[in-house]
Simulated scan of single mutants.
Amino acid sequence: MAEFDFVSDLHNRTKRDYISRGVQIDKAHCAEVSKQFGFDYWDGDRKYGYGGYRYDGRWRKVAERIAETYALRPGQAVLDVGCGKGFLLYELTQVVPGLVVSGIDISGYAVANAKEEVRPFLQEGKAQELPYADDAFDLVISFGTLHNLPVYDLKKAVQQIQRVTGRHAYIMVEAYRNEQEKINLLNWQLTCESFYSPEEWAWLFAEWGYQGDYGFIYFE
């Protein structure tokens, strides 16, 4: 296993008011709505999630970094677990023409409203129940998804990712390095179920037999 950072610059572009988010009187209600992962989470009011998640090319540099790190080539197969609207997969097809992409997401809304070019390759489903054969992919990626699972499903999802990759895997999750980042994460999150430090995440990955790479984002 190795640690790579593909998204910190993208993540840190967003300015966050952690205090206001943490004390808003309807935070519990917002979390309940967000965890349905429907219209409100993706394209509704900002208090429920993204506040409008539309293609703007922001994932292109991430795709370039992934393609370079894993030396992706035309004809290879890549799976995105928690693909959302498929923007990263689309960028990967532009960076590496001829790449074979697949995506799975718990949100039927996201899949139905995905980038048109990759929508036929996406399906609704659970990370802990991947409907693919063993060693089916050259690379399996998961960005900002697995921390939304309780620990018993988290273990299954990590092991499923390991099962379906024939070569490489990369998992990115939310984490905290100190008490301030922990409080910021708790204030900001709406859907997160698993809260761990980088050291705890790495221990869990190893304990569950995961051999791929990983990375983290922090709420500074």
Rank of each mutant, 00 (worst) to 15 (best):
L186M: 04
K126I: 00
Y18C: 09
R65E: 14
S194K: 01
H29A: 13
W188I: 05
N187Q: 10
D134L: 00
Y53C: 15
G125W: 00
F143E: 11
Y218N: 13
R119Y: 03
E181S: 07
M172K: 08
M172L: 14
G103S: 09
G215H: 03
E200N: 08
D45A: 15
S197F: 03
A169P: 03
Y210R: 07
D9R: 10
L79Y: 07
G108I: 00
C83S: 14
M1A: 13
W188D: 15
F87H: 15
L139E: 13
R46S: 13
A202N: 05
V96T: 11
C30G: 00
V78S: 07
Q211K: 05
Q94E: 15
V95D: 10
G108Q: 03
R163M: 04
G44V: 08
I25W: 12
S20N: 12
Q123I: 07
Q36V: 00
V164D: 10
G108M: 02
E199C: 00
A136I: 03
S197D: 07
D45G: 02
V101Y: 11
W201D: 15
I66P: 14
A28I: 10
V158N: 02
R73V: 14
N178M: 01
E32T: 15
C30T: 07
W208P: 02
G75M: 08
Y152S: 14
A169C: 03
D138T: 05
